[in-house]
Design a protein around this nucleic acid. Structure first.
Lengths: 143, 143
DNA sequence: TTATTTGCAAACGGTTTGCCGATTA
DNA sequence: TAATCGGCAAACCGTTTGCAAATAA
């Protein structure tokens, strides 16, 4: 994560406001502060933002994440929950524990390669992809 | 597609009604009648069902596809449209044309293998997976 | 100053549900 | 017959939007 969200906004011409800075900060810190697999949905984002500035409305949070997504700064995920989750644009995939909801991030070069190959086989240039694995923990002794 | 949806209902103890039979029929035929890449959303399903029996309500369509999904007969997809699509449970992936919305189905053994390997690498047994590729057609001469 | 953004509350759209009469096994 | 289902309309819930006041550049 070389560049902050704020820096990306500047370079992409996205105007910064106090609200947007706070939302950007919360998203950036959601990894460090809550661990690797923290994927807050919009509502949870709003809760965290509210603790910093309770006057920010949820409409602003929605507008901001959408804006950041359109600017290519964030990526939207849906998983199997009905609620949207946003995270910093970074090419990784997700392994989701169907029992606990835990989310593990992973990258795999071989899969990336295969995906490109498949797309081109059908005459397409790959521009985006989504890979979600759902699994249950293999128990070692107890669980 | 060896077994019909009706047969699957019987073997899974799902009670059959006229409405469910019609909905099952429409889903089964959505491939043959409309071509390989026909993935009707619930609303479109309802439209087609209505032509056979206009008295069937959309609530019944929703209840039925959900029931079939829970019985493991259908699989739900969301793609990037906000509307749910259901299709017969069959392990394939999707390549979506981001310009036209065309959907191409594909299966790839190598990818399946890799996915299992990755899951087990993290201590998980793979129980489900979702792979969506989004691409644009490579133009050959014109388009 | 001028365009853009925000907060509020109302609207939206896909999906679910409570009620009760109708239908299935 | 006993249990389940289906139709209707209202509720639900995540998300979007119109408006007027506030703010960024």
């Amino acid at each position: 994560m070389s560049e902050t969200i704020e820096q990306k906004c500047l370079s992409k011409g996205v105007k910064l406001t106090d609200q947007r800075r706070i939302i950007a900060k919360v998203i950036s810190e959601s990894k460090k502060a809550y661990g690797e697999s923290d994927h807050p949905d919009v509502d949870e984002l709003y809760n965290r933002v509210s603790k910093i500035d309770p006057k920010i409305s949820i409409a602003t949070v929605y507008r901001t994440v959408k804006l950041f997504e359109e600017a290519g700064i964030l990526t939207k995920h849906d998983f199997k929950s009905g609620k949207a989750r946003y995270e910093i644009n970074d090419d990784h995939n997700h392994l989701i524990d169907i029992k606990t909801g835990d989310i593990i991030e992973f990258v795999d070069e071989d899969i990336e390669e295969l995906q490109k190959k498949i797309a081109s086989k059908y005459g397409y240039k790959l521009v985006d992809h989504k890979l979600e694995l759902y699994g249950i923990k293999i128990d070692k002794k107890n669980e």
